[in-house]
Simulated assay, not measured.
Amino acid sequence: MLSISEFSEMCHLSPQALRFYHAERLLVPAGIDERTGHRSYAFEQVEQAMLITLLRDTGMSVKAVRQALDEPDRVVALLDRHHDEVHRQRKAQDEAIQAARTVFGAEPELQTRPVPAMTLVATLVHGTPLGRNAQEWEEAEALITATATALVKTVEDAGATTLGRPWRALALETPRQEGRVLDGAGPFWIVKVPVAAPAEVLAALPAGLQVQEQDPYDEMSIFMPGRNTMAKYCTATLRLLNANPLDDGTFVNLARLRQELHDDGVLIAAPVEQRPGQGHPAR
């Protein structure tokens, strides 16, 4: 029998790690002194310790390691699944690092630009949760993105040309929509894409799609790098809110806030509108 210190040196595992593996029932000592509580190990347990170390060095959780040891015929499949998860996490971390570099290297700034007149095709996004927490936000993001992708395909299949990226906004365009958002019934989001198409193509679009003619306007925006999160959405909203009121008598209308996803981040923007009684904004 080997003492815990001897076994520790032989297996290159600290006594603390061995005690932890014992508590987790991964590597139970061959013997425990009832009087002193000292642990001792059998030489044959070196192989078990080696296998645990191999699996733990991959980053597998204790739970996954236990499953691998209990089901040796599934170890390769479990390692493949773990590899895919590690790859996904590394990709997410790389994107987060790049986003952090961008934010800290060049603080996102508000910008104002003119938006031309355009024809839009819009559709409500059904079934999204309220977005009260990170999980609901991710679920809503997936549904909104899927709806936007389907919208682009539908209008292009119908013969229309998309003129830019689709975007999403809160569904507050009619009193009915606003009422359903405020009472929590939904739909909460609407997706739009700018298009060019003959009138007959637009008229033949499937039911449920809305064709809207948008007049030109000025827009204030901020670009937040990285994936779209609730915190970034709130930060951008706060930046735009702090711009109000503007010196020329205009204001940023946050009720018409929109989000436009890009490969490297999200553009969050809202129209700059004239305050009542102030005349027309300069263009």
Rank of each mutant, 00 (worst) to 15 (best):
I4V: 15
S5T: 12
E6M: 00
S8D: 03
H12C: 08
L13F: 11
Y21G: 03
H22S: 06
L27A: 08
A42R: 10
F43G: 11
E47C: 00
L51M: 13
L51H: 08
L51D: 14
L54R: 10
L55N: 02
D57Q: 14
D57N: 15
S61N: 05
K63G: 07
K63S: 13
A64R: 12
H83T: 11
R88G: 04
R88F: 10
D94F: 08
A96T: 09
I97N: 01
A99G: 04
V103R: 11
V103F: 06
E109C: 02
E109K: 09
P114L: 12
V115I: 14
V115C: 09
P116V: 09
T123M: 12
T123R: 13
L124R: 12
V125C: 15
L130K: 03
L130M: 08
E139S: 05
A140E: 03
E141Y: 10
A142Q: 14
A150M: 06
T154V: 11
E156S: 07
D157N: 12
A158R: 06
A158I: 01
G159S: 06
G159A: 07
G159D: 04
A160C: 05
P166E: 12
A169H: 07
R176M: 13
Q177D: 15
G186K: 03
F188Y: 15
I190F: 01
I190N: 01
A196N: 12
A199G: 01
A203V: 02
A204M: 04
A204S: 14
A207C: 00
E213H: 13
Y217F: 15
D218S: 10
M224S: 02
P225D: 09
Y233W: 11
C234M: 12
R239K: 14
N244V: 04
L246V: 00
L246M: 15
D247N: 04
D248G: 03
L261R: 12
G265P: 01
G265Y: 07
V266Q: 01
V266M: 11
L267W: 10
A270E: 11
Q278L: 05
G279A: 09
H280I: 14
H280R: 11
R283H: 14
